[in-house]
Amino acid sequence: MFEVRFATSDLEQEDAFSVRRKVFVEEQGVPLDLELDHFDKTAAHFVVYSSESPIGAGRIREINDGIGKVERVCILGEFRGKHLGNLIMHALEEHAKTTGMNKIILNAQSYAVPFYEKLGYVITSPEFMDADIPHRAMEKRMI
Rank of each mutant, 00 (worst) to 15 (best):
L32I: 15
A91Y: 05
E71M: 14
E14F: 12
Y111K: 04
I104R: 01
H45I: 11
E27K: 01
I55K: 03
L87N: 09
F24W: 08
S125R: 07
F17C: 06
N102K: 13
S9C: 08
Y121I: 02
I88V: 07
G68S: 06
I133E: 03
T98R: 11
K82T: 08
F6D: 09
D65E: 13
I60S: 05
H83F: 12
L36I: 15
E94P: 00
L34R: 11
M1L: 09
S125F: 03
M138G: 11
V73P: 05
A44D: 09
G58P: 08
L84D: 11
F24A: 11
D37M: 04
M129C: 00
S51W: 08
A108E: 06
P31L: 10
G66W: 06
A91W: 02
A43S: 14
E71T: 09
A7C: 12
R59V: 03
A112T: 05
F79Q: 03
D37L: 00
G56S: 09
L87V: 00
R136W: 10
N86W: 05
S110G: 09
D130A: 08
R59E: 05
G120S: 00
T8E: 14
E62Q: 15
S125N: 11
V122Q: 15
I123D: 02
P31G: 12
